[in-house]
Design a protein around this nucleic acid. Structure first.
Lengths: 245, 245
DNA sequence: ATCAGTTTTTGCCTGTAAGACAAAAACCGG
DNA sequence: CCGGTTTTTGTCTTACAGGCAAAAACTGAT
């Protein structure tokens, strides 16, 4: 539903609307993840000016005077990627330690964004993807924020259907298991993943098949996520209400 | 460890330190829960001035110019309750819709705080506890924030040991099941709760017993939480790493 | 002292879910 | 048709949650 179906091009362009008047003492940032070449990668941006000139930082920027947080992060991200590529976006945390920013106490509200693996968004010159496992030297407290994002993503893969935001619209089980492996950081048996997600009703067969790869093998069935909006697995409400009520 | 052992007195007093200069356009709020008379209750405060004069609102206030978020919410709460009574405090969410505040776009970072059931903090005149099930008419978007807090608490009771922050240092299983019932909103069988929390290693017997109540009955064993810091139940990392590694 | 009532504790049973493993199915190229 | 490869299905084990009933341990009254 979030427009993740087709490869994209749009991208670098300053948004004229929104963002009125002088900036406030608040910024919004986004940890945007995508699985690229079987590795969890995060979108970073190279600062051209001090402080932290030349360091890599998270996309984002100052919040406009009369801007909402959600609209602001969408506006800021639009300067880096096509926002329609974001299959999921949720608030992560807000940091406000004095000292996190050299120019004084500037609060930052961080978001977690996910881009499906089949998309290759065009990004500006100063922007590129970095494996979350080998982050470059980053400015401010942004490396810590990336780690928060990873933890959140890992947790939610366990008890929600966020997978939909990492996977393309259609996929085979073994492809999906590779996405999960990249995001979770450990092997995920395809045969188990299939049953877990099927039983939870998260995925379903599309009916299509994919001819087996170069070296033969049984053709793989195609699956899709039943919904592309976040749902939590109710089996995870332990201490749940008693049977009769 | 958070000083939850004894009934408390300290409370209303403006904190002279901290909070320098003019307030920023950011406020911190706290949803402080406590189980009182077997009901989940939230600490509210009656506004004496417009906007929303006379309405109930969450404790908190403007963030000082050079103040960190955590220190600010602690400072603000100190004006309502003894902060040492808080057995747990975590960031909840940040809201920034323009329109959430009549005086312009003012961001609010909300926290979730928990006070053990055995404590009866002295609170100022304008402050009191309200059952979370029957909230009074509240100002701003604070009612929505209370609901966020309830959802967060409910979820964390399932997959963490936050119970320690609701229960007194020692308790019987049936007492604990009443706390869980109040917080979760549905019955919790004591016999189940016992086994679940014991197997998870969250609680342990102290060795003490409580003489049965007025009408007889077998004396109940006393339990305590093994740790009073937040820990997530690892059994809840589904899609976990394979056995051999 | 014994008995009825009450509450806690223990034990047993069931259902569900996850994970490991092996066998079967379906395709490729030669 | 055969070996190699990948996916799919099926079986088994383990772990945990939850329901239920019996046993244990106490109180107060007869």
């Amino acid at each position: 539903m979030t427009g993740a179906e087709t490869g994209t091009q749009a991208a670098p362009r300053a948004d004229p609307a929104a963002h009125d008047g002088a900036p406030s003492g608040h910024e919004v940032l986004a940890v945007v993840f995508q699985i690229r070449c079987d590795r969890l990668s995060v979108l970073l941006w190279r600062r051209a000016r001090p402080p932290y000139e030349g360091r890599w930082v998270l996309p984002g920027g100052r919040l406009g005077r009369a801007e909402g947080l959600d609209s602001s992060i969408r506006r800021q991200l639009a300067q880096k990627v096509d926002v329609r590529d974001l299959a999921h976006l949720e608030q992560l945390e807000t940091r406000g330690d004095p000292g996190r920013h050299p120019q004084g106490r500037i609060l930052a509200t961080a978001y977690l964004g996910l881009v499906p693996a089949d998309i290759d968004p065009v990004v500006p010159e100063d922007t590129s993807w970095h494996p979350a496992g080998e982050l470059p030297e980053m400015g401010f407290d942004h490396a810590a924020i990336v780690h928060s994002g990873r933890r959140r993503l890992r947790a939610k893969l366990s008890y929600t259907n966020v997978g939909f935001a990492l996977a393309p619209p259609e996929f085979t089980v073994s492809q999906l298991s590779r996405y999960y492996r990249a995001a979770l950081g450990h092997d995920v048996a395809a045969t188990n993943l299939r049953r877990v997600l099927l039983r939870r009703g998260q995925i379903e067969e599309t009916g299509g098949f994919v001819p087996s790869g170069r070296s033969g093998g049984r053709p793989a069935a195609l699956f899709r996520f039943r919904t592309r909006r976040l749902e939590i697995t109710d089996a995870f409400a332990v201490l749940r209400p008693p049977a009769g009520g």
